[in-house]
Nucleic acid binder design. Sequence first.
DNA 1: TCCCAAGTGACACTGAGTACCGCTTTCCCG
DNA 2: CGGGAAAGCGGTACTCAGTGTCACTTGGGA
Lengths: 200, 200
Amino acid sequence: MTPSVPGLREQKKQRTSDQLRLVALELFAAHGFGAVTVDDIVVAAEVSKTTFYRYFDSKEDVLIGTATEKLELMRSALLSRPPTEPALDAVRNAFLSVAERYEDERDRNMTVGRIMRTTPALAARNLEHQAAWEELLRDFFAARDGASTPGLRHCVLAATVVASLRTAMDYWVTEDAATDLPTVVDAALRVTVHDLGETG
Amino acid sequence: MTPSVPGLREQKKQRTSDQLRLVALELFAAHGFGAVTVDDIVVAAEVSKTTFYRYFDSKEDVLIGTATEKLELMRSALLSRPPTEPALDAVRNAFLSVAERYEDERDRNMTVGRIMRTTPALAARNLEHQAAWEELLRDFFAARDGASTPGLRHCVLAATVVASLRTAMDYWVTEDAATDLPTVVDAALRVTVHDLGETG
DNA sequence: TCCCAAGTGACACTGAGTACCGCTTTCCCG
DNA sequence: CGGGAAAGCGGTACTCAGTGTCACTTGGGA
């Protein structure tokens, strides 16, 4: 399927995609998301609008499009956890392995985070991915319980855990990654799993 | 400020707004959200597009615009809880009082829920409100802890509780409100507060 | 060398949302 | 009553996101 040595064609595609992402990020950071049009981006990247939309589904996608890859990473990470591991531990460990990728792109994530905090529309679009994560975890929790279809309990578990992980990410970004991501994630999950039970 | 007897002008405004909401809901239910344009709505409601956008910020807003009112309801409900009440109980009770309004609009909520489940873009827009809810609860939890600024713990609590409440609402809607909303809410919060602590 | 398929750009289009402006209606005050 | 300020409305023209089409170039394989 994928050749070991990617041909010239593939290289060009990769360059175009990278260039669009890079240019868009610079423009967004400089002038704000709303003040930059897709036309601005394609002119700066020297491609046509058609090409832009061949690579990205939307203007938002050029910024937060990597989220889909992260989800797939999470899916396979979950599948590779031992079936005997408690469900919550499996989610925690799977997420931490995925989170390494976030730290790899630390600088980019900081910039994206800064842009996102100043653009409500973007934050909303980002929440879209949350639904996909919840679905993934919902099915995972249900499967671990041997249930064919997720019940209220699985839905609530999925929703709360995703909320907890998202909060950890947000916190990590707003703190300029001063703390290790795993530490923040652990702290967040600890609140969810322990403090919550005691408080109520 | 607001006259006890709303003048003719106010009555007309109310009628126009109601008419737009009603007509839009019918069209969305009949043909799907994506297949209905704002032009379709304003033609059916016999107003101009200009007028539509004077009443609603966006096409989505005509469907889920009442969410903002619910947030304010929640805010005042929270404020009127006794300060000695445990934070989580206060949130639960405040939400249940707000939830009565949801049951009042039972039929409408069912229809909106059905449309929303088949329209990803709408679900996303709905999640926008979640951020506002989280902010509200974040500040509330922080205030109850005597903290001037919310910490990670307050953020996680807010996020998980909101996620839990939202899941309860979703579940309630997908079950065609077969169960009492308070029952579902209680069950969801019980998962969050108890089961989660035991599982981990 | 030639051919096919993939990728691209130009163009035209729909639909959301905004800005402006002139007209009608309501309201209020004398 | 009557007349003027102000609120509300409709029409038009606009920007920008996103889609579809088609003719062209360019890479890769035979």
